[in-house]
Design a binder for these strands. Sequence first.
DNA 1: TTGATTGCCGAACACTGTTCGGATTCTAGA
DNA 2: TCTAGAATCCGAACAGTGTTCGGCAATCAA
Lengths: 210, 210
Amino acid sequence: MALTMTPKERRQAKTRQAILDTARKIINSKGIDGLSIRSIAKAIDYSPAGLYEYFASKEEIVWAVCSQGQNRLYEAMAQVDPALPDVEYVIELGSAYLNFAAEYPDFFLLMFTTAPQSMRNQAPPGKEIDKEMMGQDSAFTILVEAMGRGVENGTFVLLQNQTVMELAINAWIQVHGTAMLWLTQLRYLNIPLEHIARQSQTTFVRGITR
Amino acid sequence: MALTMTPKERRQAKTRQAILDTARKIINSKGIDGLSIRSIAKAIDYSPAGLYEYFASKEEIVWAVCSQGQNRLYEAMAQVDPALPDVEYVIELGSAYLNFAAEYPDFFLLMFTTAPQSMRNQAPPGKEIDKEMMGQDSAFTILVEAMGRGVENGTFVLLQNQTVMELAINAWIQVHGTAMLWLTQLRYLNIPLEHIARQSQTTFVRGITR
DNA sequence: TTGATTGCCGAACACTGTTCGGATTCTAGA
DNA sequence: TCTAGAATCCGAACAGTGTTCGGCAATCAA
């Protein structure tokens, strides 16, 4: 797609990306409260007003950062080897999810808490954060396919009237709960993530295998 | 304790509680972004500066609101009948947790996401939000005792080298993940909470029973 | 009746996101 | 090449935020 762009469009895209990159860096270093229009502007040698040529509001910037975060999460999970056995594959997918959360805590919390709330109203039509999550090339899709494969192979067993997607949601719940609880509570009690994550995953696998 | 207070202290406590009550109401109606010092002050016929006689900062107000929220969550879970069989008891505890989250979504999200982050630094010493969570008369304590009882009765089985507290953390992860994922994602996809919660709890119980 | 403390407020400060008008600079068409 | 118009960008301002400070009353202790 970059080949079909005019020089003007390329400049625009470059500036847009520079804004998003600095915004993401500030979030990862100073947290979401340390992110201001003026701090972004100063970092890229722009006037605060100048940013509004590229984004309509601060929320739109944060939304775009989160949207790219979903892609990063997808790529992290897509790197897990699908040739692994069913159980190991699902566990490794979960570990990729958790590593992402542990590496970028503020970013992860932003993507899954404050972001979906306040930005639901003015996200680009057809590109809401939930559609983004469920759509093609999303992290959740990888999980659905992994669970579906396990069910077909007879490795995982469905509950009564349970669909594969619902099973995937349950897997998501388990790993997401681990990430959220560790980020907001357990890590301050010096409880290591790997320790509790292994237990949680083991119990979950025990619950869905026969 | 209210009996040992001087009239002056009673007045102070009354005003403090009025501040916290209005703050909680604003959070539940307008969300956390709708909460401002000036909006609280206007609601109780005070000047913005007047509130600083009772709380040192806005964050201290939010912290106190969250702290009282922990108590409300504890009371909700304490009302579950302990005479229930092990499995039903744990499930009902989880349902109480989920009902709380569904009834006060913004409040719940505040308690478990933005709050623990930003207020860790200047919470009253010995009263950090995590100590609050793990301490006596906390919601988590109820869960620990419930799991411990189930283990003693042989209803629940521990993993290798797993403690009862770790098992309780896993139960917490499961129910917390359900709450968070539904509040931030699933409810916008019109997925009913009861539906997905039942599956999640069933799978978890299946994972910890022999 | 003093003197001091408490309770409360108006005004101000530094910050935030955002808008608007006016400068530049770039670009496309005759 | 010249010019009209669009694309960029900025300074200044506005409304809102949390917070501080000086001072004015009311209350309380001696």
